Simulated scan of single mutants.
Amino acid sequence: MLTASVQEDVGGDHREPLGGWAKRLLDLLVASTALILASPILVLIPLLIKATTGGPVLFVHRRIGFNGKVFDCYKFRTMVPNAEEVLQRHLSCDLQAAQEWAANQKLKCDPRILFFGKMLRKSSLDELPQLFNVLRGDMSCVGPRPVVADELQRYGAAAHEYLKTRPGLTGLWQISGRNMTEYSHRVLLDTQYVQTWSLLRDFSILIRTIPAMMKFDQTS
Rank of each mutant, 00 (worst) to 15 (best):
T3D: 10
V6G: 00
V10F: 06
G11N: 09
G12Q: 13
G12I: 08
R15A: 15
E16D: 06
L18R: 00
G20H: 06
D27S: 12
A34F: 01
I36H: 00
A38H: 00
A38G: 00
P40H: 05
P40G: 07
V43R: 11
I45K: 04
A51Q: 06
T52M: 14
G55Y: 06
P56D: 10
L58P: 09
F59V: 07
V60D: 02
H61S: 15
R62M: 08
I64A: 06
F66S: 06
N67Q: 13
N67V: 10
G68V: 08
K69V: 14
F71C: 07
F71S: 03
C73D: 06
F76W: 08
T78L: 06
V80K: 07
P81Q: 09
E85T: 15
V86T: 15
L91N: 09
L95H: 14
A97T: 09
W101A: 07
P111R: 02
R112C: 10
F115I: 10
F115P: 15
G117C: 11
K118D: 08
R121I: 11
L125G: 13
Q130K: 05
Q130S: 15
L135M: 14
R136L: 15
P144A: 09
R145F: 05
A149K: 05
E151G: 07
L152T: 02
Q153L: 12
R154D: 03
A157F: 09
A157V: 10
A157W: 01
A157C: 08
A157E: 12
A158G: 02
H160I: 02
T165N: 00
R166P: 04
L172E: 01
W173V: 09
Q174F: 11
Q174D: 00
I175Y: 02
R178C: 11
M180F: 03
E182C: 09
H185C: 07
H185F: 07
V187M: 01
L188R: 10
L189M: 08
L189Y: 03
D190C: 08
Q192T: 09
Q192F: 04
Q192K: 04
Q195C: 04
Q195R: 14
T196R: 06
W197K: 01
S198I: 04
S198A: 08
R201E: 12
F203T: 10
S204V: 10
L206F: 09
L206G: 03
L206Y: 08
R208D: 01
P211D: 05
A212P: 09
M214E: 00
K215D: 15
D217R: 13
Q218E: 14
